[in-house]
């Protein structure tokens, strides 16, 4: 950034190179959360850095030289490991490239993957699923089991993040209570950033309406539950950043999050179970498909999209709050 000297040491190339090598972090100056750890490459090269790292270790875990010694021993193993890994990865790339060279050519209509499966989705998709958007029809009707699994991946992902990052206020553990106090940034709120708040006033409604539009039109145009839900989630996050937890807490609490997720996933699970059960037993499902192209059409796809949209919006917002301060 500074251009005081025009030599290699301060040149952008050097900075870029050292960043690529993982030696420096251009964002270091901005983040004061913890003391910077000396970068690892230097640790072993100079005695000063070795001392620094030893202090670092002893600061946390008392005087123990063995850690440093063992770290030094691991270095040699790691060089070998590094070389081996590069060789392995280059090998993988070469083999796969060789494979690609004998794969069918892209964009060719006679490729093996453009077979009767894709043909039926295109030719009969509209009549069989009622969805104008063939991809939506495919993932929510023909291959709905995959998509149900995918929602469960999102659900279990958010559960794991909850396990890791949720801090419980009434916890008996002293250190956890300290962590809550540290990560709680509520006293700095509301920030009253007038520019941000005014922009948010204009943008949040637009974002929310756009998100709802994407969710509701998933079967008619590009979009659907996941993309619309992500847009809705980003709207919630923007609102939170502009107006703070105080205002957000009035309308969106952890209880509400849990209820929405539970209801949406339960409905999804029951609706799809019904459809799988009737399908496999060759029963009529009795769900009207409606007129293709109308907003109330295509059977279960619209309600499923709404469910998925709600779950995704809540999950995105929950990820944000959990990463920021460990709770809603």
């Amino acid at each position: 950034m500074s251009r005081k000297k025009d030599n290699y040491e301060t040149s952008r190339w050097k900075k870029f190179k050292s960043w690529v090598d993982g030696e420096t972090d251009p964002l270091d100056h901005g983040m004061e959360a913890h003391e910077a750890i000396p970068p690892r490459e230097d640790i072993y090269d100079s005695a000063a850095h070795e001392k620094a790292v030893k202090e670092e270790l002893s600061k946390i875990y008392g005087e123990d030289r063995r850690a440093v010694l063992r770290a030094r021993g691991i270095r040699y193993f790691q060089r070998f490991y590094k070389v081996m890994s590069v060789v392995l990865c280059l090998g993988i790339i070469m083999v796969l490239l060789w494979t690609v060279a004998s794969l069918p050519i892209t964009g060719n209509a006679s490729n093996p993957d453009n077979n009767e499966v894709a043909a039926r989705y295109i030719e009969k998709g509209l009549q069989e699923t009622g969805a104008v958007n063939i991809v939506t029809g495919m993932i929510l009707d023909y291959r709905a089991f995959d998509t149900f699994g995918e929602s469960c991946v999102l659900f279990i992902g958010s559960c794991c993040v909850l396990v890791l990052l949720r801090l419980d206020g009434d916890s008996k553990n002293e250190s956890i209570r300290k962590m809550i106090a540290e990560s709680d940034d509520r006293h700095f709120e509301p920030k009253n950033d007038i520019i941000l708040q005014k922009c948010a006033c204009v943008l949040v409604p637009i974002i929310m309406i756009f998100g709802v539009y994407i969710v509701l039109n998933g079967h008619l145009s590009p979009g659907g539950g996941f993309s619309g839900g992500a847009v809705l989630g980003s709207g919630l996050i923007l609102y939170l950043n502009a107006f703070g937890y105080g205002k957000m807490g009035k309308m969106f609490t952890e209880k509400l999050y849990k209820r929405i997720t539970l209801c949406a996933l339960t409905f999804y699970c029951l609706a799809k179970s019904y459809s799988f059960f009737t399908g496999a037993n060759h029963l009529e499902s009795g769900i009207p498909l409606g007129t293709p192209g109308a907003i109330l059409s295509s059977g279960l796809i619209l309600p499923l999209n709404i469910c998925v949209g709600l779950v995704v919006a809540c999950t995105m917002y929950a990820f944000y709050t959990l990463f920021r301060k460990g709770g809603m």
Partner: peptide
């Protein structure tokens, strides 16, 4: 693969399967 003007011919649209897989 979004049906436009009621055209439902295979030669009009690309293969929808990979798009669905990518979404998942």
């Amino acid at each position: 693969p979004i049906v436009v003007d009621g055209i439902q011919d295979v030669s009009a649209y690309i293969n929808p399967v990979p798009s669905g897989l990518v979404l998942t």
